[in-house]
Design a protein around this nucleic acid. Sequence first.
DNA 1: TTGTAAGCGTTATCAA
DNA 2: TTGATAACGCTTACAA
Lengths: 363, 363
Amino acid sequence: MSLPPPRDPDALPGASPPRATIADVAREAGVHASTVSRALNPATRGMVTEAVALRVAAVADRLGWRPSAVAAGLRTRKSRTIGILVPDLINPIFPPILHAVETLLAAQGYATLVANTDNDPAREALLIERMATHLVDGLMLASAAAGTGAISLCARLGIPAVLINRRMPEGAGCAAVSAVTNDDRHGIGLAVDHLVALGHRRIAHLGGPEGVSTATDRLQGFRDRLAQHGLEPAALRPAQAYTREAGRAAMQALLAEPGKGFTAVAVANDMLCLGVYDAMEAAGLRVAADISVTGFNDMPFVDRIHPALTTIRIQHDAMGRQAAEILLAEMADPTRPRQNIRLVPELVIRASTAPPVQEPACR
Amino acid sequence: MSLPPPRDPDALPGASPPRATIADVAREAGVHASTVSRALNPATRGMVTEAVALRVAAVADRLGWRPSAVAAGLRTRKSRTIGILVPDLINPIFPPILHAVETLLAAQGYATLVANTDNDPAREALLIERMATHLVDGLMLASAAAGTGAISLCARLGIPAVLINRRMPEGAGCAAVSAVTNDDRHGIGLAVDHLVALGHRRIAHLGGPEGVSTATDRLQGFRDRLAQHGLEPAALRPAQAYTREAGRAAMQALLAEPGKGFTAVAVANDMLCLGVYDAMEAAGLRVAADISVTGFNDMPFVDRIHPALTTIRIQHDAMGRQAAEILLAEMADPTRPRQNIRLVPELVIRASTAPPVQEPACR
DNA sequence: TTGTAAGCGTTATCAA
DNA sequence: TTGATAACGCTTACAA
């Protein structure tokens, strides 16, 4: 690639020269604009003589021509842009997913538009509308809580969409949209198995916010696996959100419940666990020694918290990558059958779980 | 807002009805398209009679009209889109910045295009070109290593840009681009003061990758403050990158250096500290008890690692917000003087620092 | 293989 | 205040 032509030295700083257009290249190369378009577009290069293609490319290069995705998009109704909505970028499980998504899309020539919904359905709808305005070719929703209209909004707007780490409730039009999630039921089951194997019999569940599919699945998986061991939940409590603060509050409430002694708590996600640690510290209880704690996600650095968290490792990367691949495939062929991918999680045993004490520390 | 017209029940799934355009609205409302444009664009609404504005709005609403940012962008050469380049989304200091940026920009009606450079200058250049293709109105660079052509590329492309958490080296055309950074020299100085106050005299520095402005500034700040205390660095070592693994490797090297006993190490960032902890554990050394460690950034959850990290808290939010504000201001007025904002960091004392032992654990 | 011409949806300029 | 017209930069039937 050569440099663009030297700038007019008299130009105001900030006032850059007008970009070369296809018409400019056409004039310089002595061919028609449509020929330039064909020569410069990799998909249509074959329609043009090798010699012409070379000459046009050289001229384009010399003039510093850059394609205008905007002009092309107006004509083709495609922006080569994909939007991704996340509930909360601060939650460490999303950056790895976003990283995987962006990397895969960039390799395919797509730009990635990111927005935070902050768990606000109204904001989510607004952002989807805005993305539609920008003519995104597809949308990845890591934010759609079951029951909100995000998915039907996408359908109305004619935007292909896939869900990441969220899925539609069973039966509620599952087939309408593809989803890539963890096998949350299986995952929480691994935690239950581990706790039971350690000897725990009185196990509580600190769940995610109600209505979120990950929370629902993990709760259900918890109950089912416990039942398979012939046990009942010692206590159940949803957190208000997947935040450290909500985890602290929920754990405090759990500890305060009368007559609900438990020796272990299976928590719906790692972020909540940080709050659980906070609440236990405040209550003078030791993690593992007094109450065993399991997390979910194996988010970065939980191997370095104290005590290191026993948790369920999910496949962040695969999640982002697969969702992006499915979206691209469905964009290319809208009749393609929808997919419901469940990635298999794995148990990571660290130091936050131990055999139970004889007397429940919390009763 | 009312619903768009019901879809044709015979339409293929995925084949949504063509979106209403301004021309459609004009026909239905019995006015000319340009009038519709004026009525619907908040900036020009005043040019049109109240009655007409109302009628047009009603029709637009009924037809489910949405503006096409693409068409408008082609005409106005503005996309209402801002790009942000980050070196590594996985590094936890970036999500909060990105969150702040996206929130502020969304409130101003801008969409945010995100891309990862993975610290690769070639990739960075490519992504900037691609963003130019998408006609971004401005660019936020959290990735520009001093010396790479990113800034001059933006200038050539005529894209307003600001740096976040990075700045141009002194004298190297500082004035050309605004930057929002931490006062890194002051920040590392706080760590040095704290260690000296604890009684440390043999203090090492584990720095960031060479050529990165944060690394340069922190190194310089370390030396300067140490000199003010009448001390020499006990040892200096740059990490290859701001990663846990690079931190581990650099700490191993530091521990292996002959005759360089030190009782404390001021590390250039928290991520590196995780590796420092790893290396110390592997070497059978205790953080704080044997060697005190300070970090930089106060990234999420370092209060929960063991021992809790003494570090320098930076203003992530303010950084993203201010950078976005400056960018918007410079987009509005390109002649606006460039700004070089340095945010003031603060020392957070936790458990990774303690008075030195008499005999250096590492000599 | 190349040229012609129309059009994507919006906004800006000019005239009425 | 509103209407007519052109233009933004590119793609794509269709014609040559």
